[in-house]
Amino acid sequence: MRDPGRYLRRRRIADALAFMAAGLATFVGLAVLAAILWTLLARGIGGMSPGVFRQMTPAPGSDGGLLNAIVGSLAMTALGTLIGAPVGLLAGSYLAEYGRGSRLSTVVRFINDVLLSAPSIIIGLFIYTLLVLRMGHFSAIAGAVALSLVAMPVMVGTAEDMLGLVPRSLREGSAALGAHPWRTITRVVYPAARNGLLTGLLLAVARISGETAPLLFTALNNQFWSTDLRQPIANLPVVIFQFAMSPYQDWQRLAWVGAVLITLFVLLLSILARAIAALFGPHANPGE
């Protein structure tokens, strides 16, 4: 037999090398995150000024801010969530309650999982055909509907998971008191899963507030102030796209500011969602 000591040593070295490589990979991942955040802060904070929140998007070469884009983005994100989240919650309720275990639920859950990762630009094409062509022009409402379709699968998925975690005994207790299923679901199951549902809602908002592709041919953009939902509306993602790709220094500076605003908003929402999930449930939460 060969020298067993040498063989052992070789295996130990291979072991150490493999785990060093794994550590290096993790370092690379964290370094990239740090690099992106650092660049954002370095370039974006410098351009931050009160004017950003007070003035409209400028013409090239003149002074301006992002007020109309910020308001437009908030309005469309809010409206998109308002449309997408309730429908998602109801669909999730069907999957977790009425349709639990049925064949339809299996199919819906599978398709929903696929839609969750499907390219969002396709949603843009869909809403363009469905709404923009019908109305004859781009509009904020088309943008909001497109965003709602991106938010919906996120909400369906989390709602089903979170409702599924609520113990059966709670439902049985409610049923034993003579409550119809709808009363059990809305008065017992939803409150028990409250924190999980809130997490899903925050994740859905985070997902759509940075989405650009579905807005390109639905809301388009608007250089001016507008709150008319039937008209094209300014929004941060499309403004960032347009300004960053332009040759004008002022525009590029505002693009970085916009990128910082969006990233901070989205990261804040994601961290909040995680904190709620970690602190209050889903395992700690449902009433037991």
Partner: peptide, 12 residues
């Protein structure tokens, strides 16, 4: 968190 950074930010 890398996954939650919007794609437009990766672009710029």
């Amino acid at each position: 968190l890398l996954a939650s950074i919007p794609s437009i930010v990766y672009g710029i």
